[in-house]
């Protein structure tokens, strides 16, 4: 589990952007690209190194009028960390 106070940011090895041709957020990296689904895109959009996991969850719940997103966000961030897409700022 990630700490709810930890603040994820996109790893400098990746660039995160919206691709009109794909109609999706993508992660670009040396000679490659990961096409993200909508929820992955919405989570990573908020990984700015200053927003905590708890704040990201709260923001997503309010933006999408949803509740109990913490477990999903957590699972995604663990996967993103394993993929090296994100790093963590000191809490």
């Amino acid at each position: 589990m990630t700490s709810s106070l930890a603040r994820p940011r996109i790893n400098r090895l990746f660039r995160f952007q919206w691709e009109p041709a794909q109609q999706a957020h993508v992660l670009l990296y040396p000679e490659g690209m990961v096409k993200l689904n909508q929820s992955a895109g919405e989570i990573l959009k908020r990984c700015d190194g200053s927003t905590s996991v708890a704040e990201i969850v709260a923001d997503l719940e309010s933006a999408f009028n949803a509740s109990n997103l913490a477990a999903d966000v957590d699972a995604f961030l663990i996967m993103a960390d394993a993929q090296n897409w994100i790093t963590w700022s000191e809490t």
Partner: peptide, 8 residues
């Protein structure tokens, strides 16, 4: 314009 994202 055609959607290419990687330029080498």
């Amino acid at each position: 314009e055609l959607g290419a994202a990687q330029f080498g």
